[in-house]
Write a protein that binds this DNA or RNA. Sequence first.
RNA 1: GGGUAGGUGCCCGAGUGGCUAAAGGGAGCAGACUGUAAAUCUGCCGUCUAACGACUACGAUGGUUCGAAUCCGUCCCUGCCCA
Length: 287
Amino acid sequence: MIVVTGPTASGKSSLALKIARECNGEIICADSRSVYKDFDIVSAKSTVDEQKEVPHHLLDVVIPGEDFSVENFKTLAIKAIEDIFSRGHQPIICGGTWFYITSLLGLVSIAKVPPNEALRAELEKKSSLVLFDMLLELNERRAREIEPNNRERVIRAIEIALGEAKDTHDERLCDKYEIEFIIKDMERKELYTRIDARVDEMVKMGLEAEYERNRAKYGPLPIFSSTIGYGEFEENPSRLVAIEKIKQHTRNFAKRQLTWLNGFERSKPTGLTLCHVRTNMNNSTLE
RNA sequence: GGGUAGGUGCCCGAGUGGCUAAAGGGAGCAGACUGUAAAUCUGCCGUCUAACGACUACGAUGGUUCGAAUCCGUCCCUGCCCA
């Protein structure tokens, strides 16, 4: 099994495609936005032709507005991996949602307590300080790991402390299969140039129209405002300002992805074959 | 030409005599990450210094004052209104 990852706009998708062609591979997209139907341009989904050439999984599996989380991703991805192996093909996980990738592989474990909307709504009313105190009472060790201001995390931790664990699959794929990591890496400056160019390209392809279409089709949704490439049009009356903001936010996002990747490399997980790829490397160095 | 509102750190923007290297936001840099993760959150962020600290700063310049981004004079620039 191969994992191809890297920051946004690093060219990981085309690299994954290239590898897939060479080794009878099928691609599993680990991307929190391309799982949504109609999020085509924003999430830079592979084209229809590319999808015809190489099978892609986990694309268009949810309708905007429906709940979707890592857990769903993991369930679907494990199924896809098994199917791919059963066909004698090679699964290639490709995407920039590092949280999805690590939890799929079992490098990070996710609590088995399902979300409790009623509890969340109740907790949402409380101040961050009160919430943090609650967590300190319930699970001090966990509380120490979370920033008191990170309400989202504190609430989930309380939910876990109060909830009942449900049985879910927790096998570590990283123990079950041999995994090769290919991390696209390049100079920050070059990455940022590529990001700018890609945003311009997306705009040319009709990013704004796609947003308008989805907005009209699904109504106002939180997923729109929290998606780089849509939210900016929502917030800025000026189209040009919105485009600049998209570029900026994409750079910020890439930085966060790099923080993950850097941390991953530093921790040097055992049992994994790590392999770096620089953009100036040619195909043969991928072996 | 007359009137009027202003000129604050990379940007936006608060601040009307000491508590101000100057709120807040953005950007930038670094980081965290157990079911929203393109999300959420943290630290740094004038210059020099490992730090204590020192220095330079609120359009320009000259004053008032023990003390000025804040008060006064002159000049420069910008927006709006009237000619």
